[in-house]
Amino acid sequence: MDFIAIDFETANSSRSSACALGLVEVKDGVITAEHSWLIDPKQRFDGMNISIHGITPSMVIGQPTFHELWPTVEPLLHGRIIVAHNAAFDMSVLRYCLDGMSLNYPSFQYLCTYLLGKKMLPHLPSHKLNVVSEHFGIELKHHDALDDARAAASVLLRLMEQESHRDPLLLSSSQGYTSGTIFAGGYTPFSARKSKPAKKPVNNQRTNNLYI
């Protein structure tokens, strides 16, 4: 039950505009450490984004840029199992930030609690983090990066408990998903395994002198 949960917030619609990062470490099924950073994206802040997460330009003055923060964050991610709610977004923010600053990708596997929740909690009306958190009784200040990361970690632990799994990767596989990966030079998405199409049976019976 060891993994890292993360959540990014962005200043605008660009995935390279990370302005906050929350990171939660889980060991043996228990949250053992939490980290939270404001990031100066060196980009404009859109009003819509500010209305969502409440982070303003004045709040990131003097905060590290992603490039400056990366040496602190990279060792926490490399070689670990990473978890995010709607991981497609958070992993793309990470990649765009790294690409924009010509930084090397770390290597890790990652899971998406949003997609796992859709599969494992089909009765819920929505699988947004606030809805899934409410279902499990998890307290959440939505769109606070640390709170979102903490909630994603708690959601995964509850889903593992629901299926009596102690390994996040085994839980993912049992639900028909292949873990995503990020590695030097590329990435693969967290995705449902494609089932092989069934082979059509061969029928050699002769009818009216024709094979059908």
Rank of each mutant, 00 (worst) to 15 (best):
T188V: 07
H123I: 09
S16N: 05
D40G: 02
L129C: 08
Q109Y: 02
P125C: 08
S36A: 04
I182Y: 00
Y96L: 03
H35W: 12
G186V: 06
P75V: 00
D46S: 11
L103Q: 07
Y96R: 04
L157P: 15
T181N: 01
L124R: 11
S195K: 15
H53A: 08
R44N: 15
N104E: 13
F66D: 08
L38K: 08
Q162F: 12
A11D: 11
F89S: 11
F190V: 09
E139R: 14
S133H: 02
N203T: 12
F45E: 06
K27N: 05
Y114H: 03
I81M: 03
R15V: 05
D147L: 03
L140C: 04
H127Y: 00
L146V: 03
S164P: 05
H135G: 15
S195G: 13
S13Q: 05
Y110Q: 12
F136C: 00
Q109C: 11
H165I: 08
N204C: 07
Q205A: 10
N203R: 10
G29N: 14
P168L: 14
L23D: 06
W70G: 12
W70D: 08
N208I: 02
A151P: 07
K194P: 11
Q162R: 08
T181R: 12
T178M: 07
A18C: 09
L170Y: 14
S179F: 06
E163T: 04
M59A: 06
E9L: 14
L116A: 11
H142V: 06
N208E: 15
V202N: 04
V26Q: 02
A149I: 07
K128F: 01
I55M: 04
D90S: 13
H127I: 13
L103H: 00
A33C: 07
A84C: 06
Y114M: 11
V60C: 15
T56V: 13
C19M: 10
G180Y: 01
E9W: 13
N203A: 14
D40I: 04
H143S: 07
G100E: 12
C97A: 01
V73C: 04
T188C: 00
M59H: 09
G180Q: 02
I39M: 13
L157W: 04
L159W: 08
V26S: 09
L111A: 14
P41N: 08
S179V: 07
M59F: 13
A88S: 14
V60L: 06
T188K: 05
P122T: 13
L169M: 02
S191G: 03
N130G: 06
N208G: 03
H165P: 01
G29V: 14
S195C: 03
P168F: 14
D28K: 05
K128S: 08
L103D: 11
S92K: 00
V93L: 01
L157M: 11
S51I: 04
G186L: 10
V60D: 10
V155Y: 10
Y96M: 06
D90V: 11
A20I: 04
V93E: 12
Y105S: 06
K42F: 07
I182E: 10
I31C: 05
L21M: 03
A153E: 05
T10G: 03
A87T: 01
L210S: 14
I39R: 12
L94I: 08
V132Y: 02
N208Q: 09
P64T: 01
M1D: 13
A20L: 02
T10A: 02
